[in-house]
Design a protein around this nucleic acid. Structure first.
Length: 578
RNA sequence: GCGAUAGUAGUCUAGUGGUAGGACAGGGGCUUCCCAAGCCUCUAACUCGGGUUCGAAUCCCGGCUAUCGCACCA
């Protein structure tokens, strides 16, 4: 069999309708794919499994925001500025290059990334082009945005961007979500949907797409309370962690429990540790091979400056090596602070103290009765100025002066009192921190395909089998009449109907020899096959065949649907039937 | 994006200027048929657009896609 595993997996995916190049009728476009019938079904099942973890179990409701966002969102998030590479084209060789990289490489400037486009062009003019070695000369440095830009409404008055991540929709709905969750921390929201990045050169099949599906959770927590309320669930969960000190030292990942990971400081806090473990459980549940899964901590210089801790779940691919499939980051209050600053909305939660804090404070109290007649319309401003004055200065007894509208006003002691009063503080406004597990669904789906892909020899013949978990297999049960005659075909059609009525994805096939039909289903990962034979017509039993072991058991037709449902849900193992 | 290489049924492949051929897969049929058996039969392709030529899958140019190297990957 020619080609590496990637080639064989993608060949199968194309042939059998999992993943297709997009719009082939007009020639495909790199960075975009179509999911075929089986791929779309499998993707939906992965997403539904994800919902089972995050929406049902964690209780983080799913929301759905537009894929097009107005410019202000992405100005605030930093994507308009930070998502742009400054590039130029060499006039001699036509090569497109990163302007800041070339300037830094020239050794003239250490902080080229901070320079504006004109300064970069000036620096570049005397440097040799790294591609062709000619002196660059006059060039135009331009920003290449990884965001797809569009315009909203006619006349392009308003710039819009296709979202580069689903997260911002959750952040911009923060106040609504806070009210929905009745003003308490922690809470979380999730979103599954398409995101878009105009990659310069997407060349790794479905690993780097220009349009891809993300499943993200944004969990808002109190910045001083990063103990997860359900941490006990995963405290003893063991998994391999590759922290950054180990990476720098070149030592392998260390298997440890989440409790140990937090105690030793390997993982920053319980929240991050909890979602590392949950992610491990999720990925292995949908079919990522545990021995081809690791969790790698970002190195300090690869981590975004605002992130307190960041880990990637990486799946091992035969061709691509370790592929990032999930990112789990403590993003602190970076996003909310950015949106608060740009929008003017507070983005905070009022946290009431268990006991109000009482404090004696010295205050400067304006005497409004005296201020009003003297200052008339300006009295309010003057009073505010008085109240804001340091009590120490005010209590000297000689009066003081304040500035109102640029004019200095003398405040004599008859205009105010200095008094000690007791104040009661009920609580404080807190800007939550965000814990963000962010899943790349397409990469997960590919990893599962690759990890499930198997070829084995059965009685001298090659058997290709996708060992997909019944939970995500597109077709769950195949039903075959041994021969399409003598009523076996009608019997089998009825069985299909019974299985479908129980919500199972069942498929009927009477074409070709029985062995061929088993192989067809093996190749698309169908975990179970029911065969109707002559005995079925006699005694109403059928055989149920297990994909992985190829073993069969004979079962009565009644109750078959219930058995298959239990097998697919993982409540029952095939071994238990034997 | 730059450079190199490639592109023939769903898949693999033959075809070097003159009728596109095979294998497997797929459809229909036959065969008391439980792991890709056999027999008959059918469907089905020159990546797209220009050019050269009486005539192009074949030669030339360009686009697209794929693979590899470089660059890129917030």
């Amino acid at each position: 069999m020619a080609g590496d595993v990637y080639e064989r997996v993608m060949d199968l995916a194309r042939r059998r309708g999992f993943v297709w190049p997009t719009s082939e009728a007009y020639g495909a476009v790199a960075g975009f794919i179509d999911y075929g019938p089986l791929g779309a079904m499998m993707k939906r099942r992965i997403e539904d499994t994800w919902r089972g973890f995050f929406v049902v179990r964690e209780g983080f409701y799913e929301i759905e925001c537009p894929t097009i966002g107005q410019e202000a969102i992405y100005v605030a998030s930093g994507h308009v500025k930070g998502f742009t590479d400054k590039m130029f084209q060499c006039s001699h060789c036509g090569e497109y290059l990163r302007a800041d990289h070339v300037v830094e490489g020239g050794g003239h400037c250490e902080h080229a990334a901070a320079l504006d486009e004109e300064s970069l062009a000036r620096e570049l003019s005397t440097l040799p082009c790294p591609a062709c070695n000619e002196t660059i000369g006059d060039v135009r440095v331009f920003g290449f945005s990884l965001m797809f830009q569009t315009s909203i409404g006619p006349g392009s008055q308003r710039t819009g961007y296709l979202r580069p991540e689903t997260a911002q929709g959750i952040f911009t709905d923060f106040s609504r979500l806070l009210r929905f969750y009745r003003d308490k921390l922690p809470f979380g929201a999730t979103q599954i949907g398409k995101s878009y990045r105009n990659e310069i050169s997407p060349r790794q099949g479905m690993i780097r797409l220009r349009e891809f599906t993300q499943a993200e959770a944004e969990i808002f927590v109190h910045p001083a309370k990063k103990e997860h309320p359900n941490f006990a669930r995963y405290a003893d969960y063991r998994m391999p962690l590759l922290g950054y000190p180990a990476q720098l030292a070149g030592t392998p990942a260390v298997e440890m429990t989440m409790a140990t990971a937090v105690e030793t400081g390997t993982v920053a806090n319980e929240y991050v540790a909890y979602y590392l473990a949950l992610t491990h459980e999720f990925l292995t549940r949908v079919g990522v091979a545990p021995e081809r899964l690791r969790f790698r901590q970002h190195l300090p210089d690869e981590r975004a400056h605002y992130a307190e801790d960041c880990w990637d779940a990486e799946c091992l691919s035969d061709r691509f090596g370790w592929v990032e499939t999930v990112g789990i980051a403590d993003r602190t209050d970076y996003d909310l602070r950015a949106h608060a600053g740009h929008s003017g909305e507070p983005f905070t939660v009022f946290i009431q103290y268990a006991e109000p804090v009482r404090r004696r404070e010295t205050r400067v109290i304006p005497r409004m009765g005296a201020l009003g007649p003297r200052f008339r319309g300006a009295a309010k401003q003057v009073a505010d100025g008085i109240a804001a004055t340091d009590p120490g200065i005010a209590s000297s007894g000689d009066g003081f002066s304040i500035e109102v509208d640029g004019a200095s006003i003398e405040i004599t002691p008859d205009l105010f009192d200095v008094r000690e009063i007791e104040v009661e503080i009920q609580g404080e406004e807190v800007m939550p921190h965000v814990i963000e597990p962010s899943y790349g669904i397409d990469r997960i789906l590919y990893s599962v395909l690759e990890h499930s892909f198997d070829e084995e020899e059965v009685e001298g013949e090659n058997r290709t089998v996708l060992r997909l978990s019944p939970a995500i297999a597109p077709i769950q049960v195949a039903v075959f009449p041994l021969m399409s005659r003598d009523g076996m075909d009608r019997f089998a059609q009825e069985v299909v109907g019974e299985l479908k009525r129980d919500g199972l994805m069942a498929e009927y096939d009477d074409s070709g020899a029985i062995g061929r039909r088993y192989r067809r289903q093996d190749e698309i990962g169908t975990p179970f096959a029911v065969t109707v034979d002559y005995d079925s017509l006699e005694d109403g039993t059928v055989t149920l065949r297990d994909r992985d072991s190829m073993r069969q058991v004979r079962l009565p037709r009644s109750g078959l649907a219930r058995t298959c449902s239990a097998l697919c849900a993982g409540r029952l193992r095939f071994d238990d039937l034997e």
